[in-house]
């Protein structure tokens, strides 16, 4: 790659080809999944129908019959939406306090929050099952999944919001105080409208993480609150007899999120690196 001199004619042609090849290579598994989802289960494993086949919508039409897709999808939507809302509800005031009224311990608190992310979930698996099943009786409920999803994303959300809020000049917030606006008013009427873009992309990212979460949603549910992660995980189908329908349900599970992801890829960098890479 780097041996080629920058101005040579060869590199002018080879460079885009190489870049396109890498892009297509990385996208190929997703393309393959979408393609397979339009094949019948029988066609999906036949080499003669690798690329040329009669497309069918059968797998999508039978998704409810085969997998009860919509129930799991509804659970995913409910849990992810409410978890995102709740996380923002707790996270915005917290990030506001840290960004505009920092104390000496703010940095340590932020670092500590991040460190809770590093706590291996598996270490507290059984106590979580025990508390929620025997003690609180909320095992396999939407409430539990929403709470857990909120808590595991709270540190990242606070961090992201904190980096966005830091960019806002303090004077603007202070000016509100002069006008006699109280703290809640400051957040609601000044901060939120100003940081709207940052809050929206934080919410989007939080939603994606909730949707894709695959440890607690699998281990703390059985049927009632089971999300799409649980559905796919439970149908890993080693025999390959159902490639078509498995692809269809997988495509339906990741499609919306990939499209959402395209819209927030720029914010992703700032969010996930906590503003350290610009």
């Amino acid at each position: 790659m780097a041996i080629v001199a920058q101005t040579s004619r060869f590199s002018k042609i080879a460079w885009p080809i190489a870049a396109w090849a890498v892009g297509l290579l990385f996208f190929f598994p997703i393309f393959w999944m979408v393609l397979t989802s339009f094949k019948t289960d029988a066609d999906a494993v036949k080499p003669e129908f690798l690329f040329f086949f009669t497309p069918t919508l059968e797998n999508y039409l039978n998704m409810t019959e085969n997998y009860d897709y919509w129930r799991f999808a509804a659970n995913s939507v409910i849990c992810s939406v409410f978890a995102t809302v709740f996380t923002l509800f707790v996270g915005i005031p917290s990030a506001y306090a840290m960004a505009f009224n920092p104390s000496r311990s703010t940095k340590d608190v932020l670092m500590w929050m991040l460190s809770t992310k590093m706590l291996p979930a598996a270490a507290v698996l059984y106590p979580m099952t025990f508390i929620t099943k025997n003690f609180l009786g909320i095992f396999d409920t939407h409430f539990l999944i929403i709470l857990v999803l909120s808590l595991i994303n709270l540190p990242i959300v606070v961090w992201m919001l904190f980096t966005y809020f830091k960019e806002i000049p303090k004077d603007i917030i202070e000016a509100g105080k002069m006008d006699g606006v109280n703290t809640w008013g400051e957040i609601r009427e000044i901060l939120v409208p100003l940081a709207w873009g940052g809050i929206a992309s934080t919410a989007l990212l939080c939603f994606i993480f909730c949707w894709n979460e695959a440890y607690w949603t699998v281990r703390l549910t059985t049927t009632d609150a089971a999300t799409l992660s649980k559905l796919i995980e439970g149908n890993r189908a080693p025999e390959g007899l159902f490639f078509g329908r498995l692809s269809a349900v997988s495509t339906a599970a990741v499609g919306p999120i990939i499209v959402l992801g395209w819209f927030c890829q720029k914010q992703l960098v700032q969010g996930l690196t906590f503003g350290a890479v610009k």
Partner: peptide
Amino acid sequence: VLLISPFFVMPAV
């Protein structure tokens, strides 16, 4: 866009 897509695929899928 093609390159970033795998990042959003859920781990189970």
